[in-house]
Design a protein around this nucleic acid. Structure first.
Lengths: 233, 233
DNA sequence: CCTGTCCTTCGCCCCATGGCGAAGCACCAA
DNA sequence: TTGGTGCTTCGCCATGGGGCGAAGGACAGG
């Protein structure tokens, strides 16, 4: 029997401060070990293990055992989008207890594995405005012009196509507009980081779960992204 | 001090089955009394009162006292979008416990006060594709052509402008694409319902919190929406 | 007024959940 | 094999929170 209020079962997983801290840390897109996550959450190893077990069972995170370590990452794009949205709601509803993201956070950041913030929204607008991608059922597909342009930028389209979704929208809360997720979003972000068009901003204090999500655009990046997509930095 | 895992405070409000049922019921966009919500949640009046108090305090719902009755509605567009997203995540993560929305639910439904589902996404694509709305910082604005076209449809643009946001994106989970929210989204939905281009589908069983969210397009509606926006029903 | 209704507050019980320490596995390195 | 380390399981305790019944305000109608 499916309950009409089915999402409560998922919401309980988000409702604990320790689990929330873990999930927030994983929004950087990096895979973290159980002990790293325990430290981030400020709890002991046994408690962390229990939390991680519930998160895995609930389908929110996935595990990659590697020797003695167990690396954890968010289970999917959907989970990342959900956390981003919930964080934005919290900020909209109660500015007093919003998380401490500064202006840099709104300008450009990682949302799991793709670009968000003003840059992410501008990228979405640029791709659709130039018809490099066009709508289809359940997402977007690349046009011929898009394939040429993206390949010239250095984006690995073959890798992007291996994802479950090639390109789809993800809500950008700080901008109230959609940015690009899916395989294409991932590969564009990877390309920008690989070529040092974007660099991660180091954390200001130790153990900040939002560390490594903030991005800064290099002069080279502003030029290249600008000319490729006609967007203003 | 703002905790990095700030969203946990909001998530606890969603994590209870009774509160989740209440919020789900309010997604229909209607204002409900405390006793109606108690019945929907399957709990007594005292428990419902406590839950509603917490939801109001948390900024998720708003109250309108009216005589002996206290009407409750969702506090904002953001809350509705958040619930929609969380419901979608639950379905993506765990199809076993997804809520029972049939095909009609995916085709056309209300997301609080605006249109969602395939129809909502098609509407968004039609408005942007014909340049009736164009992007701006934090949302969309209507062009001159858009003002003419929308007014001809019967949409009250003056009313739409009284909203906090004129037009912004809202994530459509079943389609993985953005649909239109904000004052314009609200007025378009109101127009379609007023002119009987769309009608609510009656609930199949008593007390279904998803009741009155499902929509069906009338032949007249398909024709009018189709010719106005060039969308396929 | 008094009555019925709607809603809230209060007091109480109960159990689900989160935390830890200790012990037990699993794996790498010597 | 023998440690050393990372992680999990087990047992236990404390607390928070959700539920109800009973009682108390607020409001409409006679």
């Amino acid at each position: 029997m499916t309950s009409p209020a089915a999402f409560a079962a998922t919401a309980v997983l988000l409702a604990d401060p320790a689990r929330a801290a873990m999930l927030t840390a994983l929004l950087s897109g990096e895979a973290l070990t159980a002990s790293e996550l325990a430290r981030v959450a400020g709890i002991g190893a046994p408690a962390a293990s229990a939390h991680l077990g519930r998160l895995v069972k609930g389908g929110l995170i996935a595990v990659h055992p590697q020797g003695r370590h167990r690396y954890h990452r968010l289970a999917s794009e959907e989970v990342a989008a959900m956390l981003e949205t919930l964080g934005g709601l919290t900020e909209a509803v109660s500015p007093a207890r919003r998380w401490p993201h500064g202006e840099a956070f709104r300008t450009a950041r990682l949302c799991y594995d793709h670009l968000a913030g003003r840059l992410g929204v501008a990228l979405h607008a640029g791709l659709t405005g130039q018809s490099w991608i066009v709508p289809t059922a359940g997402g977007w597909v690349a046009t011929e012009a898009g394939e040429v342009g993206l390949t010239a930028m250095g984006v690995d389209l073959a890798a992007a196509r291996t994802a479950r979704r090639f390109a789809c929208d993800c809500m950008d809360w700080s901008e109230r507009r959609a940015h690009l997720a899916g395989g294409l979003g991932r590969e564009i972000a990877a390309c920008c980081l690989r070529r040092h068009w974007l660099t991660r901003i180091p954390a200001e204090r130790e153990g900040d779960p939002l560390a490594r999500r903030r991005l800064r655009m290099t002069p080279e990046g502003a030029r290249r992204l600008g000319e490729a997509l006609g967007i203003a930095a």
